[in-house]
Design a protein around this nucleic acid. Structure first.
Length: 654
DNA sequence: CTAGGGTTAG
């Protein structure tokens, strides 16, 4: 078929041309993969841009051959110049294959060819550099881009900043942003700012990173610079970040000012905003915190577990459990408050009767002295409890018309369970899973169970295990269907008292009951397990969690690594650390502190030192905890040096 | 895609 028909569009080639190309392409590919560019003859090959692109796009050809071919084509200059498009291709190939060392010379030849690739390709290159830790190269490339002076997509800077932040290169990201903000005379930079900064995602990311790294001064610097920049306005998220950060660092005045300002800007504060502000109750401003709760309710938001946790931690910190009473009064009537009060009353009633019921709990709760503390926690008012009975099938039936009750009510279960308990002679059975399962699964995520979990977390976190156990005991007797965290807490309590069989029972029963919604709640359990050196159970929890499709965030990883490490399971801790990194989570200062400490205490000083080095290399700045830990490491090293003056870990580098 | 509570030392 050789009739020379005109090709209408370059993308629709005649069959003959197509066939010819295919054959040519096949032959080149074959030659390349067999013997590289050695046997290619420029005179016999009609090098054209589409052809080069097609070769570069060949999946069967490995990247090194493609790069060779590309260089071979370049060598044909001045007869043949590569187009920007081809450069774009080869850069992508290079990035994909990780041959970043090829980049500088490729950039040079691009310069010679007097073409410039698109912003997107630059962005990919920068990100590839940053991803592989070649920050210097990334900066060089940035300079080079400025030098080229071409119109670059301002979003390139955003992506660079974000990429750096994610690589813990907060300081570097900071310097780039500040440079952008200050460089009023460089047109390209200005362009970048004008388009990119309003409502910028990158700025928010950087601010968050600065807050997390406790870089107060730098945070303020960026904050001020952004505010001075004309045309820049924070979005809701940005305001939230700043409000939280200033409050976090104790500058409540600024937090509140920003809060006011954002409302004036016409932005609507959301639950994030309020929950950030409520943190101020940690500083003792309990009254104001409650006012905010009022405002939340007034605006139609519903307080969530974060709100409650923040408040309770604040109350706890200031020893003001009596404020829970006031909190409940502030929570919107008709919705939560009645349930909260009811829950409270039920708990009280249950506890009152408990005293007469089980006596064989003593060995599990050797210390009874703190009982009054629970009473304080719950408050002293004893309201009459609702004595509704529930139906046999486990559904809640509400006969109290005055209180719009729903499935959150606990008292019907409690009543029934109280009866069961009376007839139940297995008082040594610490809890009954079948009993729990009989209750319909409606309470998951509801307020009451969260409330209990919150108290449990606090008790467990403060080492008040007996209190936590007690609370849980009461709680599970009420027959609330436990969510995973509750099981976990329970298990933790058992473990701490040596009731391993029961703990395993819980583990096996957890099954589908896992409630994966709130990862924070899983942490305390692992922490507790780690503290008693039962990381094997922590691993089991983890396994189950993962099988349920749960995911791990950085705090969870840290908690787990800590638990494993403290239990002396260093190998597993390290494995988890690797898993964490391979799942794309960057270790933070807490992770490194844990790893350094764990290895130090295990006598693996060299490893500890390596983690310190890794931490510094990854741009993660040490904090006060690191200092304490390093003191320990230093002493251990000193000790070792004293013992064996000759064989030393490579300590004296830094 | 980014924001709030929950993770580490003494």
């Amino acid at each position: 078929m050789r009739h020379g028909r005109t090709v209408l569009s370059s993308s629709f080639k005649s069959p003959s041309v197509q066939l010819g190309n295919i054959l040519l392409l096949a032959s080149i590919t074959k030659t390349l993969s067999e013997s590289g560019t050695r046997n290619l003859d420029p005179r016999s090959i009609p090098i054209s841009e589409p052809l080069v692109l097609q070769v570069l796009a060949k999946n069967s050809l490995d990247s090194s051959k493609k790069i060779d071919f590309f260089r071979w084509c370049c060598s044909l200059r001045p007869d043949y110049k590569q187009s920007a498009c081809t450069y774009s291709h080869i850069f992508r190939t290079v990035c994909k294959a990780g041959f970043l060392e090829e980049v500088p010379s490729l950039l040079n030849s691009m310069k010679e060819d007097q073409v410039v690739v698109d912003s997107e390709t630059f962005k990919l290159l920068l990100e590839a550099f940053i991803k592989s830790g070649k920050f210097d190269s990334a900066l060089e490339l940035l300079d080079y881009m400025e030098e080229l002076g071409t119109s670059l997509n301002p979003k390139v800077y955003d992506s660079v900043i974000v990429a750096l932040v994610r690589k813990n290169q907060v300081a570097l990201a900071l310097s780039i942003l500040l440079k952008l903000l200050e460089a009023n005379n460089v047109s390209i930079i200005n362009k970048a700012i004008d388009v990119s900064l309003p409502g910028s995602f990158a700025c928010n990311e950087l601010l968050v990173a600065l807050r997390k790294s406790d870089m107060r001064v730098e945070f303020k610097q960026v904050f001020d610079a952004l505010r001075e920049k004309k045309g820049f306005e924070f979005d809701t998220c940005g305001y939230n970040i700043c409000i939280h950060a200033f409050g976090f660092w104790g500058d409540l005045g600024t937090s509140l000012r920003l809060f006011k300002e954002m409302k004036e800007q016409g932005l609507v504060p959301d639950l994030h905003t309020y929950n950030s502000l409520i943190q101020l109750c940690r500083e003792g401003h309990l009254e104001e915190a409650l006012k905010l709760v009022e405002e939340i309710e007034g605006r139609g938001f519903v307080v969530d577990l974060v709100t409650i946790t923040s408040l309770l931690i604040g109350f706890h910190k200031h020893g003001r459990w009596d404020w829970t009473e006031r909190l409940m009064k502030h929570i919107r009537d008709g919705n939560l408050v009645s349930h909260v009060l009811k829950w409270k009353a039920d708990l009280e009633a249950s506890m009152k009767s408990r005293k007469n019921r089980r006596k064989d709990y003593t060995p599990i709760f050797p210390s009874k002295g703190d009982f009054s503390e629970i009473m304080n926690l719950i408050g002293s008012t004893i309201s009459e409890m609702d004595t509704n009975l529930n139906s046999e099938d486990g559904c809640v039936k509400d006969e109290d018309s005055s209180m719009d009750m729903d499935q959150w009510s606990l008292s019907p279960y409690m009543d029934r369970l109280a009866d069961q308990l009376k007839s139940d002679c297995h008082s040594s059975q610490l809890f009954s899973l079948s009993r729990s399962q009989r209750v319909q699964d409606k309470g998951v995520g509801s307020f009451d169970i969260d409330m209990v979990n919150t108290f449990l977390s606090i008790f467990l976190a403060k080492g008040k295990l007996n209190l936590a156990c007690k609370l849980f005991e009461i709680f599970s007797d009420m027959g609330v269907n436990p969510v995973t965290y509750t099981y976990n807490s329970m298990m933790s309590s058992f473990v701490k008292k040596g009731y391993f069989n029961q703990a395993w029972g819980v583990l096996n029963e957890m099954g589908e009951n896992v409630c994966p919604t709130d990862i924070a709640t899983y942490n305390v359990i692992i922490q507790g397990l780690g503290k008693v050196g039962r990381a094997d159970l922590a691993s089991a929890v983890l396994d189950k969690l993962m099988k349920q499709g749960g995911y791990l965030d950085i705090v969870m990883y840290n908690t787990l690594i800590n638990a494993l490490g403290k239990a002396g399971r260093i190998v597993e801790a390290n494995k988890l650390f690797e898993q964490m990194r391979s799942s794309g989570i960057n270790p933070d200062v807490v992770t490194f502190n844990i790893l350094i400490e764990v290895h130090s205490k295990a006598g693996q000083l060299k490893e500890a030192y390596n983690f310190l080095k890794m931490m510094l290399d990854s741009g993660c700045s040490p904090n006060h905890v690191t200092d304490t830990t390093l003191d320990f490491l230093g002493r251990e090293i000193e000790k070792l040096r004293y013992q064996k003056a000759s064989i030393m870990p490579n300590k004296d580098d830094s």
